[in-house]
């Protein structure tokens, strides 16, 4: 479609969707699957997911939410813009509204979310000031900005209004779980006070800082541990994490396949060898699908974000 503002040509969100006037979205959703002779499959609806961001980042998200609509989720894609007559497409349980003016955003979400079911906002970028209104309308806010600095600084305030999380945080779940399992071992807990260095290699320094912030806030570090975030020419967001003191270390490293993590612990009195566990499915659909299952406030994330802002 033609972008009115820039004049550039680009693929519409939900290209297979039916183009409808804004006022007819509800009607089109209700008739979804009927007009072409198909019957919409009966299903239990579970949530609304609202994806907000610049058009370029919504195209990728659109594929994921199309899959989520197969499991009872209503998806609303809204790209930021300034079009007085935004284009609207409807496909099954998904709606795409392109170039919506910021002042209409809250009204669009309020009108289209499923009543009495959770609403999750997936924030892929835009003016961070819009987050305040979205927080009021949602049960969960999942941040997913390319540069999270502006939004992370707002997390504490947003968390007072709605449960707030971050997709980077979600992707670190397996890495956090493995580190946590090390601390189930008494010898590791006994050695923890002697750790002096945390090194994180990976392509995403924001993720590395978040991880460091989590460890720092959970273990109560007050400056005795040097944190070394080493962004390099890695393909993976996180490649290797080592917490130790030169002689002893807890190490997590991405395996050669990129699908598994190798974990090994060598501390005073314990040499557990290494084990390999799955990194889990890291595709966008699975990660955001996982976020839809979480309802509660994530205070560990809030503390981690606060601490991450002090990590260089």
């Amino acid at each position: 479609m033609e972008n009115v503002v820039s004049g550039s040509s680009r693929e519409a969100l939900l290209p297979l969707g039916k183009e409808v006037p804004f006022a007819d979205i509800e009607l089109a959703l209700g008739r979804s699957g009927l007009d072409d002779g198909k019957r919409a499959p009966g299903r239990a609806l579970t949530a609304t997911i609202v994806v907000v961001g610049p058009h370029a980042r919504l195209a990728e998200a659109a594929q994921s939410v199309e899959q989520l609509t197969d499991v009872g989720v209503r998806a609303i894609l809204i790209s930021n813009g300034d079009n007085p007559s935004p284009s609207v497409r409807v496909l099954d349980h998904a709606v795409a509204i392109e170039e919506l003016r910021p002042e209409y955003l809250n009204n669009a979400v309020a009108a289209l979310r499923l009543s009495s079911l959770p609403t999750v906002v997936w924030w892929r970028g835009g003016n961070p000031e819009m987050l305040d209104g979205l927080a009021e309308l949602s049960d969960r806010l999942v941040l997913d900005a390319e540069d999270p600095a502006d939004v992370w600084s707002r997390v504490n305030a947003l968390s007072e209004r709605t449960a707030t999380s971050d997709l980077r945080w979600a992707r670190l779940t397996r890495w956090r779980a493995l580190m946590t399992q090390f601390f189930d071992i008494p010898e590791v807990r006994d050695s923890a006070g002697g750790f002096t260095r945390l090194t994180i290699d990976g392509a995403d320094s924001h993720a590395a800082r978040l991880y460091a912030g989590w460890l720092s806030s959970s273990l109560g570090w007050t400056g005795g541990v040097a944190i070394d975030v080493r962004p390099g020419a890695w393909t993976a967001a996180v490649q290797r994490i080592e917490l130790g003191n030169g002689d002893h270390a807890l190490t997590l490293a991405l395996g050669p396949s990129g699908r598994c993590i190798q974990a090994s612990a060598h501390v005073q009195g314990y040499d557990g060898g290494s084990r390999v566990v799955s990194l889990g499915d890291q595709c966008l659909t699975t990660v955001i699908g996982g976020e839809l299952r979480i309802r509660s406030r994530d205070q560990a994330f809030e503390r981690a974000v606060a601490a991450a802002q002090g990590v260089a």
Binding site: T173, R176, A177
Partner: peptide
């Protein structure tokens, strides 16, 4: 007590077994 357990998204795992 495991200091990292708080707020972990995965279900709790058993101790050494």
């Amino acid at each position: 007590m495991n200091p990292l357990q708080d707020g972990l998204r995965l279900e709790p795992t058993p101790g050494p077994a």
